[in-house]
Design a protein around this nucleic acid. Structure first.
Length: 438
RNA sequence: CGGGGAGUGGCGCAGCCAGGUAGCGCACCUGUUUUGGGUACAGGGGGUCGGAGGUUCGAAUCCUCUCUCCCCGACCA
């Protein structure tokens, strides 16, 4: 993409609306614009990041055996009356009335919808287990939205729902998601710790919040040093449930809890192995048994002809929140530092002197060849001073910057800079193309 | 919802207390400068001051009502 053809509204000054660094950088780097409290428009660059994150989530859900579908944003109130949540949910649910005076709502989550869909699609034990997921916009009318997309009212969430015949099977489904989440966050260059979370009325140990450590996080977390980045084992693949279960059993023996679940006794037990930090909740998995299947009449017939009420669990990833969370975890004084996996473009080309013919020819050629090689490239071809271009590139945080200018071109080289390390090297255009797979 | 704060060109702000018909920085446009890590100079375009009502000869400034946004708290992917 040529910057001269793009819409990238960069801001030189901080916005007075933004209080934390990720929100500030998202506004300055032209990723989002706020349209109402807690509601954001995703500008072109921001949408690319959102899509990258969603795609990683999607691939890992698929790998774990979950099946993608798409549920509506607007749901009928009657479905929620069946589960009893229409009254229970409270003012956080945005209620809507249509022209026929029918009660609708903008879905804050989708247990009711997915349960009703399964009710109409599943009849036999042969149809289970299944896990369905979708990546869809949700709306929760938060009392006080803040921190940009990290606590918006409208947000993009991956929500998955598992249906199993019995609790043992439900545990397998749960554990597969546990593993899928670790894989998902690791692929984004993130280190998220699965912490024990409030299991709700069902009780048990099947509820975990995945917390990304970050100074501006909203949760306090306590964890065994084993959870430190770098010390964790390879996450297994999904070949068989036993391997998955063994992995989860091995991992969950190491202490990790948010402050509301924190056990003072663990402090003494762990001693100097205990770590404390602040974090951002980026995922939540939990098992809730037959709460919805029971109330909404989802049943299947078992092997011996008996009627079985399926066990359910649900599994959320805050996709739009992750954009902010990643920036919170990965930035410096000059701007965002995108992990390669989620960067909106992999390479940024800066032509220092757009008016210099030789320099322009080299930059144009590199752009064409990288693009032809399938590399996502953002090419700053504007007739602008070099300094401003460097600052813009650092701000938007693309992993690699290629700097093309008359002096280098005379020597037959361009400069390749890593945004993360700041290291620069002079490299010939051919070697550059080769490095990026051209 | 309780407590606090703010709405003035795209962004950041001053002006309001002591009413006189809107200003600064950045961004933007034109020209010069040919500048290797946010260059400099000159010229220029753009706002009726969140909205409604009121007081006044005159309102961004005073009064009333109202809408919106931000911060602290309870709530949450």
């Amino acid at each position: 993409m040529r910057l001269s053809n793009y819409v990238l509204p960069l801001l030189r000054e901080d916005s007075s609306d933004a209080q934390i660094v990720s929100h500030q950088l998202m506004l300055r780097a032209g990723l989002v614009r706020q349209t109402a409290a807690g509601i954001y428009a995703w500008m072109p660059l921001g949408l690319r990041v959102l899509d990258k994150i969603a795609q990683i989530v999607r691939e890992e859900q698929n790998r774990a055996g979950a099946i993608e579908m798409l549920m509506p944003t607007i749901q009928p109130a009657d479905l929620w009356r069946e589960s009893g949540r229409y009254d229970a949910y409270g003012p956080e649910m945005l209620r809507i009335r249509d022209r026929h005076d029918r009660d609708l709502l903008f879905g804050p989550t989708a247990e009711e919808v997915v349960t009703s869909l399964m009710r109409g699609s599943v009849n036999s034990y042969r149809d289970l287990p299944r896990t369905l997921y979708n990546i869809q916009w949700k709306f929760r009318d938060e009392i006080r939205p803040r921190f940009g997309v990290m606590r918006g009212r409208e947000f993009l969430m991956k929500d998955a729902y598992s249906f199993d015949l019995d609790i043992d099977s439900a545990r397998h489904s749960y554990n597969r998601m546990y593993v899928a989440y670790l894989r998902t966050f690791a692929r984004m260059g993130l280190h998220a710790i699965p912490t024990k979370a409030d299991p709700g009325p069902i009780g048990g140990d099947m509820s975990h919040e995945f917390i990304l450590l970050a100074n501006n996080g909203e949760s306090d977390v306590f964890y065994h040093e084993e959870w430190e980045a770098g010390s964790q084992p390879e996450v297994p693949d999904f070949a068989d449930n036993n391997a998955i279960d063994a992995f989860v059993a091995e991992r969950t023996q190491f202490y990790a809890a948010t402050d509301e679940m924190h056990d003072k006794a663990a402090e003494a037990e762990l001693g100097d192995k205990l770590r404390t930090a602040r974090g951002i909740e980026v995922g939540h998995i939990f098992y809730f048994g037959t709460k919805y299947s029971e109330s909404m009449g989802l049943k299947v017939q078992g092997k011996d002809g008996e009627i079985v009420t399926p066990q359910m669990g649900s599994y959320g990833v805050g996709v739009s929140r992750l954009v902010g969370a990643i920036i919170e975890a990965s930035h410096d004084d000059n701007g965002i530092i995108w992990p390669e996996a989620v960067a909106p473009f992999r390479v940024g080309i800066v032509n220092i002197r757009a008016s210099d013919e030789a320099s322009k020819a080299v930059a144009d050629e590199i752009y064409a060849r990288l693009t032809a090689a399938g590399v996502d490239v953002l090419y700053d071809d504007r007739d602008e001073r070099g300094g401003a271009k460097f600052a813009a590139m650092d701000l938007i945080g693309l992993p690699w910057q290629v700097i093309v200018g008359p002096k280098g071109v005379e020597r037959g080289t361009v400069e390749l800079k890593s945004r993360a390390s700041g290291e620069r090297e002079d490299i010939s255009p051919d070697a550059l193309i080769a490095k990026f797979g051209g």
